[in-house]
Structures are given as C-alpha cells and as structure tokens.
C-alpha cells in the first residue's frame, strides 16, 4: 500500500496547477523512491517529468510499485478543497480503484477526506538520454516568466542564443522584434536573483513561446529555474524542489525557416 504525507498541501497544488494545462490524464508511479510522473502533451512537443522523492514526504511508505492513473482536472477539483497549509496524506491500496486524499488542518481539528476514482491509462514511457548540455543557464524563475510573457506578445517563437557574451532571447513578429540580453550576475544579498551561465559551446535554438509560457506556471515552485540547451536537442527547463525532488519540462526545438 501507499501512504505519503506532505507537510503542506501547497506543494502538490502548485505542481498540479503547473502541469494541468499541458497534460490531462497521467499515471503517478509510486515506488519506494517516491512518486514520479512522466507525460507528453497531446501534440508530442512537450514532456512533463515530475519526481517527488520519498524524502519530500514524512512518513512515506510504498511497499509495491503502484501506478495511480489520475485525471488532473479531477485532482485539481479535490485539491481546491485543501487549504494551502493543510497536511496532505495520499493513500492507496496495492491494486487500487481509488486514491484517498486526507487534508488535516494543523490549527483546527478539521479533517477532510476525498476519494478520486482511478483510470486505466496506457501511457507511452519515453527514455530520456543522459545529456551533457552545451549551455546551462540558471536564472530567477520570475525573470524567465517575464521574458516569455513579454516576447509572446510579439511572436510565436523565441530563439535562445547562448555565447560567451551571455544569453539572448530574441523574437520576430508581425509588429516588430524584441530581444532581451542577460549576462552572468551575482547578487550576494539576494542569491535568488543570480544569473549563472555555464557554457561549453555556443548554442542557438528556437522554441515555441506558447509552451514556454505554459512551463512558467511552475514559477511559484522555485525562485530559480535552470535551462539546459544543446544544439538540435530538446530544451530542459527544471524547477528544483526540496529534497532533490523536481519538476522538469522538455520542449522539442523548432527547425528551419
């Protein structure tokens, strides 16, 4: 059986909120290392990969591998019934028909309990090759969100160019063009504002802004976001969570003109 207790319901609320517009029905794969989710969007352009390590829960118990097939719309409805600060416990039997969610308020004695019916989801699992990326940019997640939002007003695509000069986000649209240039930057007092660029070779890739704007819904999960790029491979956008847990998005590049 599975029993996983989260100190704050907020974490799961934010994760589900960040991915629910990209993917609808997903398997939450539970085993003794934690709860993982991998799902591709319908157009096969973006992939969500979530890992909530067992250390992110206290306690965490999962004796056998269990796949919980959940509709994220249904999960959202139920998670809305939880206060952000509620303690959340996920429970399921070994061959479950439902997943049980218990929300406990630390301040009052209120305990609420919900069951969500599970679905049989036959999902293709993708092998993601270990990649030594040519460029890794770590930057404030709010800054990345702003760049994506600003440029999406002008164009459908953004080119991300990384060189010794820094990183440049460029777009061209019907009304004109825009570009934002960032350099490495260290703020001793506010390290969450740091921009770190780790480059082994110059990179230039083009991506759909619609998807990037969507990924940025995860900005509330982490102050910083990591962008990993290599020429001609999908972009990795990573929001690191506590205890080595993470929410990652992969986005296939655009090619040619």
């Amino acid at each position: 059986m599975l029993e996983a207790r989260l100190e704050q319901a907020n974490l799961l609320k934010k994760v589900v909120d960040a991915i629910k517009d990209l993917v609808q029905d997903c398997n939450f794969d539970c085993n003794d290392s934690g709860i993982a989710l991998q799902a591709m969007d319908n157009s096969h352009v973006a992939l969500v990969s979530m890992m909530l390590k067992s250390e992110s829960f206290s306690p965490f118990r999962c004796d056998r591998n269990i796949a919980l097939g959940i509709n994220l719309g249904s999960l959202t409805k139920v998670l809305r019934c939880a206060q952000n600060e509620d303690i959340l416990t996920l429970k399921a039997e070994d061959a479950p028909d439902v997943v049980n969610l218990v929300f406990e308020s630390a301040e009052t004695d209120r305990i609420s309990e919900y069951d969500i019916k599970l679905m049989d989801i036959d999902q293709e699992h993708l092998g993601i090759p270990e990649t030594e990326y040519a460029a890794t940019i770590t930057m404030p997640s709010a800054e990345f969100q702003r760049i994506c939002r600003d440029l999406s007003a002008l164009s459908e695509s953004v080119s991300i160019e990384c060189s010794k000069e820094g990183v440049k986000f460029n777009c061209q649209g019907d009304i004109g063009s825009g570009s934002i240039h960032l350099r490495s930057h260290t703020n001793v007092d506010k390290p969450e504002l740091n921009v770190e660029i780790d480059l082994t070779e110059p990179v230039s890739l083009t991506f759909s802004l619609k998807y990037l704007v969507n990924f940025c819904k995860a900005s509330g999960l982490s102050n910083q976001v990591k962008l990993c790029l290599s020429n001609e491979v999908p972009l990795l956008v990573e929001y690191a969570l506590s205890n080595n847990s993470y929410l990652r998005f992969y986005l296939a590049p655009k090619i040619g003109d």
Partner: peptide
C-alpha cells in the same frame, strides 16, 4: 515560420 519538431524524434519509447 520555423517548423515544430516532434519530441519522439529525440526520445524513444521504452
């Protein structure tokens, strides 16, 4: 307009 690649071209099903 640049063409959108499919993720399946990079990641294989397992």
């Amino acid at each position: 307009t640049p063409l959108q690649n499919d993720l399946g071209e990079f990641f294989t099903a397992i």
